[in-house]
């Protein structure tokens, strides 16, 4: 009983924070079922306009193709980014040397420059390569991120070097150690990195809107931006679009969350 009471402040704190976190999401879901006027009136109860909002949204915008494009971009970015950055992060830590540390420090500088400043040179680069409007041009600039490299490098610090040494003595190749021992062991790091990368890629806005000129390669954030660009905004429809755009990232998180949970349970055992 005393143990329980001792946890009470923790539960109260968690409840307050969870409420703070979830309320705006609740508002988003409820608003998707309301008319524009009700949303502006901040109505907090579910309404009956969901189907109308659906019909209007799908009649006005090519939601399916935007979803597919967003999905291709987010999945492509995540897979390539995790692969590339974990290899590099592993390399920086396991083959640690002064020279490599210096390289890492320099690479980290790249993370510090605001994207708006490098956008125009990048656009020139991709335009010269004839890649305007291609999903490749959306993905490539975002896959090698110093941030993920740093994440994997930091995480690798807690990866026991003895295992690597042992594997080397057993004659496992360096690539083999990485692919067969490191990757499966670090799955919780991969899961966290995947969630983060997927979300960033899914919500990426500034670069896609510049490099994707045709509408048939539009993404969800661009579609949402178009919905609120007119003289008259239908807020119910807008909130529905926003809800649809948020679902995949939430689902990805919920799915990969199990990878975390498994890791935690395993550690407690």
């Amino acid at each position: 009983m005393i143990r329980r009471l001792r946890r009470l402040p923790g539960y109260v704190f968690l409840s307050v924070f969870a409420l703070f976190s979830v309320f705006p999401l609740y508002f988003m879901v409820v608003s998707a079922t309301n008319s524009s006027a009700d949303v502006l009136d901040s109505r907090l109860l579910p309404g009956t306009q969901l189907l109308e909002n659906f019909a209007k949204l799908f009649a006005e915008q090519d939601v399916v193709s935007a979803m597919v494009n967003s999905f291709l971009i987010a999945v492509g970015t995540t897979v390539l980014s995790l692969l590339l950055c974990s290899i590099a992060g592993y390399g920086f830590e396991v083959f640690h040397s002064r020279a490599k540390d210096a390289v890492l420090a320099i690479l980290l500088l790249a993370m510090m420059i605001p994207f708006a400043a490098t956008m125009i040179p990048l656009f020139e680069l991709f335009a010269n390569a004839g890649l305007v409007n291609s999903l490749i041009a959306v993905i490539v600039p975002t896959i090698a991120t110093p941030f993920l490299i740093l994440l994997f490098r930091q995480a690798t610090r807690s990866f026991p070097h003895e295992i690597i040494e042992a594997a080397r003595i057993d004659g496992v190749s360096e690539v083999g150690i990485f692919a067969r021992i490191y990757m499966p062991t670090m799955r919780s790091t991969y899961a966290a990195a995947a969630v983060i990368t997927f979300m960033t890629a899914w919500n990426n806005f500034l670069w896609p809107r510049v490099i994707l000129i045709n509408n048939d390669v539009q993404t969800m954030p661009l579609l949402i931006s178009n919905l609120s660009a007119g003289y008259v905004t239908d807020y119910g429809v807008l909130m529905l679009a926003v809800l649809l755009a948020s679902l995949p990232t939430m689902v990805i998180f919920l799915v990969l969350q199990r990878a975390f949970a498994a890791g935690i349970t395993g550690a407690i055992k």
């Binding site: 946890r7 923790g10 968690l14 924070f17 969870a18 976190s21 979830v22 705006p24 999401l25 508002f27 988003m28 949303v39 502006l40 901040s42 979300m199 899914w202 919500n203 806005f205 969800m220 954030p221 949402i224 931006s225 609120s228 807020y235 807008l238 909130m239 926003v242 809800l243 755009a245 948020s246 990232t249 939430m250 990805i252 998180f253 919920l254 969350q257 975390f260 949970a261």
Partner: peptide, 29 residues
């Protein structure tokens, strides 16, 4: 701790939401 999954999910979900909705919700609130 009980309801671990619930707390974790609730607290993390905001960063899965796109910026438009979040700004709109905050402005409305």
């Amino acid at each position: 701790l009980r309801w671990k999954g619930f707390w974790r999910t609730a607290i993390f979900l905001p960063c899965a939401v796109s910026l438009v909705s979040y700004s709109l919700v905050f402005r409305t609130m």
